[in-house]
Design a protein around this nucleic acid. Structure first.
Length: 116
DNA sequence: AACATGACGCGTC
DNA sequence: GGACGCGCCATGT
């Protein structure tokens, strides 16, 4: 049977790792895809605790309004904005147009790529 | 055990 | 759009 032993946190990290360059997803969406509906806050925590060696594209995760979650002008905010811009994502006042950049994974891809 | 704190989200006004 | 309130829940004091 498909492994269900992967920890919630590991599942979140895995989902984030699937977000393609130039695309973004939200904390809530990642939580849903990881099988943890309603637990967006847990996703932010998982990203904060993620081992650097995983090299996760954490900058591709923003809030449901399309905005960078960090407060403007903070180092983290600036880094996230630069990382997004470096992959051609337009960011205005910390906001990204979800209509253009939202990641829409197709079911088939997910089924083939998720280890749980 | 009891609060406070978030890289959140959603409904309401 | 902005401001609140409330649900959510792992962590830290």
């Amino acid at each position: 049977m498909i492994s269900a032993s992967l920890s919630p946190m590991a599942r979140i990290w895995h989902i984030v790792g699937l977000i393609p360059e130039g695309k973004v997803s939200s904390y809530g969406k990642v939580a849903d895809l990881a099988g943890l509906p309603g637990r967006a806050r847990y996703v932010s925590q998982a990203l904060k605790l993620a081992p650097t060696e995983l090299n996760l594209p954490w900058h591709r995760v923003i809030n449901s309004q399309g905005k960078i979650a960090f407060a403007e002008h903070t180092p983290a905010f600036i880094e996230q904005m630069q990382r997004l811009r470096s992959e051609q994502v337009i960011v205005n006042r910390g906001r990204v147009a979800l209509s253009n950049y939202q990641w829409r994974p197709d079911l088939a891809t997910l089924v083939l790529e998720l280890p749980f």
